[in-house]
Amino acid sequence: MKIKIDNWRDRHGNALDKAKRLLADKSITNKQIVDVTEISKLSISNYRTGKTDIEKAKWSIVNKLAQMYDILEFTPTYGPNGENIIKFSKVLSEFFEENKEAYKDDPRFLEMIVILESIVTSDPYITTELMQPFFEKD
């Protein structure tokens, strides 16, 4: 029996999928990838040409490429100079403050809200996902 656990983070593919897409994107130069990831130019060239199989790369390499993919994928949502993320941060802060006030007499719910706030505000991927409905592309 094969078990597959769906993860919301995998909607855009897993780390290996993202690394492959980044390497396949010809609009991104090797130099740009090297500058962001600090992976050697030779390694990037070898992954792109297929001389080295990305599927056999170290996790740290795949992860760096996937992170760059995420940055490029979600940056448009942030708006010019990050204005959307700034606006959304205020909305999110108000949301958590209102809920902390509403549950101030219930220590378990209050603790849960504080934990959720910590998780959400420290993970840019989660924040980006949550802000999508506020700044949907027309």
Rank of each mutant, 00 (worst) to 15 (best):
D10P: 01
E83W: 03
N46M: 13
S93T: 13
D35N: 11
V34Y: 12
K51V: 13
E98S: 04
L16H: 03
Y103K: 00
A66K: 00
I85W: 00
S27M: 10
S89R: 03
D106G: 13
E111C: 07
G82I: 10
W8E: 08
L72K: 04
L116K: 13
G79L: 04
V62P: 00
Q132D: 07
L92E: 06
I86P: 03
R21Y: 06
L23N: 04
T121Q: 10
R108V: 15
L22W: 00
S60T: 12
D106L: 02
E136T: 09
G82Y: 10
I28H: 00
N63M: 03
T128C: 13
Y78L: 14
Y78I: 02
N7R: 14
S122L: 01
K51D: 13
G79M: 04
D53V: 06
K2W: 12
A15T: 10
Y103T: 06
V36Y: 08
P133R: 08
S27K: 09
E83V: 14
T77G: 09
D138K: 07
N63P: 01
N84K: 14
E101A: 15
P76W: 08
D17A: 10
D123P: 02
R21P: 02
T52D: 11
G82F: 03
K41F: 15
K58A: 12
P80S: 08
Y125K: 14
G13L: 04
S93I: 07
D106S: 11
D70S: 07
N7C: 09
R21N: 10
S60H: 01
E101G: 08
E98D: 07
P107S: 09
S43Q: 15
E97S: 10
Q67D: 14
Y78Q: 06
F134L: 13
M112L: 14
V34C: 05
K20V: 05
V91Q: 02
